[in-house]
Design a protein around this nucleic acid. Structure first.
Lengths: 173, 173
DNA sequence: GGGCACTCTTGCATTATGCAATGGTTACGT
DNA sequence: ACGTAACCATTGCATAATGCAAGAGTGCCC
């Protein structure tokens, strides 16, 4: 990929090769992380479908929410969220009640069982990542933290403007 | 695990463990990467659904395949893959023909239009990651490459044993 | 030649998804 | 205070995704 002789010949523009090499490294890491996440989901996929799991994650993260907010965060139509909530409520994983302060809306919330499912997946994922980190040379670890922080900082700054919706198909935790 | 107390990750709380801190950093980066991928998909989601796009990606990566292999790689039932292939063929994005060497199987392959869709998404994703990398301090970039390589190396080593299926819902490129 | 494994295909049931319409509830403006 | 507009949940309708199971064609091996 990156040869040597990074001669920044023009302007203040950063050398293309440098950025390209880093981009490729990030993409490679992405694939691994997605594979890990996919594996961590197989544990619960007997109990809930993937879209249902996404809903549980959002509720675990944001606590009680009304339906339209939930739908917006999942980037699905409210009718879709509606029927998913129906099924999750029937399965005893979420709890629905009318908001007494505003009777137009309903408050949706995880039950204990719902929380347990999310926690199981999160624990599995953390465990698997930790296992990988353990296999890394110890002196590389601090470097990874520093580098990733720089990356996420650079990536999150403008995201306020973008108002990134939650992940399309996999929510991590 | 965590109820809904926001996790202090690596700062704030005294890192109980080196591994723990790194794991948290990786999880944070994961979320950003997923958000990026989700955004890169919105461009094509008028033309194909997400599962359909996954199928296109697999075909772009592996070239011509028979149906069961494709289904296996997508981790879906062959009947599901079958009908998705029907729709993609009807849309002119893939091409199906009987394998002359083995008339039980059908060979599925991307058309030009199918390729274009995959390329669009990949380009979008690379562009967005590159933009973030550009915003990083230049002296952090090489550190990121080194650190990510150490991470992916450590993560891929045992994956031969695991035989990781492709990502459950998002294929990256 | 016959069984057997492999492939594609189709029928059936459930879930996911969006759009549009309906009815209840709140907010706002005059 | 009244009426209208905005907001919210809900349901009907159509299509896609998904798995299981059964059926039909094809190739392989003994």
């Amino acid at each position: 990929m990156a040869q040597h002789a990074p001669e920044p010949a023009w302007d203040a523009e950063p050398p293309r090769d440098d950025v390209d090499a880093v981009t490729s490294a990030v993409l490679t890491a992405s694939r691994l992380l997605v594979a890990i996440s996919a594996r961590s989901l197989t544990a619960v996929e007997e109990q809930v479908t993937l879209p249902q799991f996404r809903m549980l994650v959002v509720l675990a993260t944001h606590g009680e929410m009304k339906l339209v907010s939930l739908a917006g965060r999942l980037a699905v139509n409210s009718s879709t969220a509606m029927r998913m909530a129906d099924r999750l409520a029937a399965a005893g994983l979420i709890d629905r009640r009318v908001n007494p302060a505003n009777r137009r809306e309903i408050a949706l919330r995880l039950t204990g069982s719902g929380h347990r499912i999310v926690d199981d997946v999160t624990a599995h994922r953390r465990r698997e990542i930790a296992a990988i980190v353990t296999r890394m040379p110890a002196d590389q670890r601090t470097g990874l933290v520093t580098a990733l922080r720089a990356f996420t900082d650079a990536g999150e700054e403008p995201s306020a403007a973008v108002a990134t919706r939650d992940a399309l198909s996999i929510d991590w935790d």
